[in-house]
Design a protein around this nucleic acid. Structure first.
Length: 262
DNA sequence: ATGGTCGACACTCGA
């Protein structure tokens, strides 16, 4: 069971790239972020033609998440609980039946949080992370395989950036952001991609600006957090870095966890 | 030190 997460940075601008990637990588479940589309405008037909079920939680202009799955959805939940005023589309959960029992997969797009001087940005990020921690704690009590996949907009450690010096004043590497991610992990999740190795570093995002890709000036901010029951099924992880070199690339690349589920 | 690049959308914001 191949589970992928990819911030696609606009599904309408990226549909050809998305279809090419689905045909090449063949994930069983793909979590997308930043679809930047309302549900009605999501290009579902082309994706369904490749054998995927499609569930979206979109909004106009920005944000928006989706899950594509070769398995039928038993249940879909949209929106992160804990704040009825929050209108931003950043969270969707799918529930599936597998030969190993139930599987829960979340596609999440955690707030960027910049600039850190603005409460409506950085404060919102930290409050969102607090809500995520509370939600995850409840779900862990179910003791089921659960994958929290997405763009977390948090650099866990200094080694998760090529040039950490340029991130010290950024919301992605603030002590509060990193601590909130650690608190979430310490509930009992494992950061699947963390175990991946590459002599050039493991990054999932390279900015479009200043030749970041050409200089391999990347950061690791897309994560798959696995509950203990999911971690026990983990067989391999990878980051599909080559996708960043394609025509009209997203600034993120797919990150993958494979679970031993037939 | 500065500006550099994208996508969506509507003359600017979010990243």
């Amino acid at each position: 069971m191949k589970i992928a997460t990819w911030n696609i940075n606009g599904v309408k601008a990226r549909i050809d790239t998305l279809l090419a990637w689905l045909e090449e990588s063949k994930p069983d479940i793909a979590c997308l972020q930043e679809i930047k589309s309302v549900d009605d405008a999501f290009p579902r037909m082309e994706i369904e033609a490749l054998g995927y079920h499609v569930e979206t939680h979109g909004q106009k202009g920005f944000n928006g998440v989706a899950i594509l799955s070769k398995l039928r959805f038993d249940e879909v939940n949209r929106g992160l609980p804990g704040d009825d005023e929050d209108e931003q589309a950043r969270f969707i959960e799918g529930v599936f039946s597998t030969p190993k029992g139930v599987l829960r997969v979340v596609s999440l797009y955690l707030p960027n949080g910049n600039p850190i001087s603005e409460d409506r940005k950085f404060g919102y990020k930290l409050r969102w992370m607090d809500r995520l921690e509370r939600w995850a704690d409840e779900r862990l009590a179910l003791e089921e395989p659960l994958v929290l996949a997405g763009d977390y907009n948090v650099i866990p450690e200094a080694g998760d950036a090529r040039n950490i010096d340029q991130w010290y004043n950024d919301a992605l590497f603030q002590p509060e952001s990193r601590q909130a991610l650690r608190r979430l992990c310490n509930l009992g999740f494992i950061d699947a991609i963390r175990t991946t190795t590459d002599e050039d570093g493991i990054y999932t995002f390279w900015d479009y600006q200043a030749g970041a890709w050409q200089k391999n000036n990347g950061i690791r901010i897309d994560h798959l957090l696995l509950s203990p029951e999911a971690a026990n099924l983990l067989s391999s992880t990878s980051v599909e870095k080559h996708v960043r070199a394609w025509e009209k690339p997203s600034d993120h690349v797919p990150a993958i966890a494979e679970l031993r589920i037939d």
